[in-house]
Design a protein around this nucleic acid. Structure first.
Lengths: 199, 199
DNA sequence: GCGGTAACTTACCACGAGTAACTTACCTGC
DNA sequence: GCAGGTAAGTTACTCGTGGTAAGTTACCGC
């Protein structure tokens, strides 16, 4: 039984798991920047240098937390996609598995995706501007869509544009015209029209 | 001429612009977290407390930088869209204006979008996993698409999923099934099939 | 010239990341 | 069962940086 606090001297692997669990909790509660190493250490029941002997730095600790989640996410989505036949169902099931996984593992994905920084919050404001504008635009194209659907579509477009912009930042050979057409290919035309193997 | 350093006592509005320019440069060069207020102050040619009397905090200074860019971005995209008739052309021109603006104002968008944090870098690794996987999936659907096009499409889907996930985080009434379908609506079916006003 | 005020500086605090040097629990061989 | 080596852990610090209090000085109106 572990009713007694096991006091000192815990094995290396076990301590590492304890630390990762505590770090994930603390980081997702307070945000990475606002979380101090001392708080993580305190929650584990050790002192700060212990964290450093195991993970080297605050960044190293964060990376270790992320690595666990990363492997799981890839596994979950690929298996889901593999269980389907045909690209449409593969895309659908993989996407669905992605959302379901994030829902189950909320602390981890909060850590990853929702920036608790000021820049992140400011970005959310910009995105709200964009989604409002695009949802309004889309309502002229699909007048019978309900508001949530329109907003969902707008989120898709905004997310896609943002990602394409970052991609262009590290891949200068992509012109802004090409990026625009890639967006239009999917959002407007749809993959279903893309000379499929069979339809 | 400004060959002589204008030494002390600059007007309030003028100083604020100087500070914003310097801050934007320093933040985008070194990343927000790695940039110190002293460095920004030094580049302006004043001392740190001056920054605080003008902008209150490091976060406040960042917000002020972002606000300038935000207004411009909205203006540029809405005017571009307004110059077109019909939702398809509006979407295309607005998107194009978005990419072009980011290209012109590189330091600002680098600041905004490319996280220079460790979490950001780790995320890029995860995204690379996802885009590789999705590009492979898409190549079965569109065998005659070139590799860059496939990757562009994959970026669109990954960005869309990420954004939908964050949206769900602040909007719990959206089920994972609905999110999946919003993605499929655009990526697979395409807006063109959405009972348009005319085609 | 002569205040008065806004711009600016010096000199500091607080707090958190990271580290060096020391201490102690546990296991191992005899 | 006891010496002693080693891994686990602690204390007590440094250093960098965000933020501030209190003092100083240039400029403007009179």
């Amino acid at each position: 039984m572990d009713t007694r606090t096991p006091r000192r001297r815990v094995g290396r692997a076990e301590r590492e798991q304890q630390i990762l669990d505590a770090a994930l909790a603390v980081f997702s509660e307070r945000g990475f920047q606002n979380a101090s190493m001392d708080v993580v250490a305190e929650r584990v029941g050790v002192t700060k240098p212990v964290l450093y002997t195991h993970f080297g730095s605050k960044d190293g600790l964060l990376l270790a937390c992320i690595s666990r989640a990363r492997a799981e996410l890839l596994e979950v989505t690929t298996t889901a996609a593999a269980a389907a036949d045909g690209p449409e169902e593969m895309l659908r099931r993989g996407t669905r598995a992605f959302f379901d996984y994030l829902e189950r593992q909320e602390p981890a994905w909060t850590l990853l995706y929702s920036e608790s920084t000021v820049a992140g919050e400011a970005l959310e404001g910009i995105r709200a501007q964009q989604t409002d504008f695009i949802a309004a635009l889309l309502s002229t194209q699909a007048p019978d869509a309900d508001p949530q659907q329109l907003e969902g579509w707008a989120q898709v477009i905004v997310g896609a544009c943002e990602r394409l912009a970052i991609w262009r930042g590290s891949n200068r050979s992509v012109t802004s015209e090409q990026a625009t057409e890639y967006l239009m290919d999917l959002a407007w035309t749809g993959l279903a029209r893309m000379t499929p193997v069979s339809e």
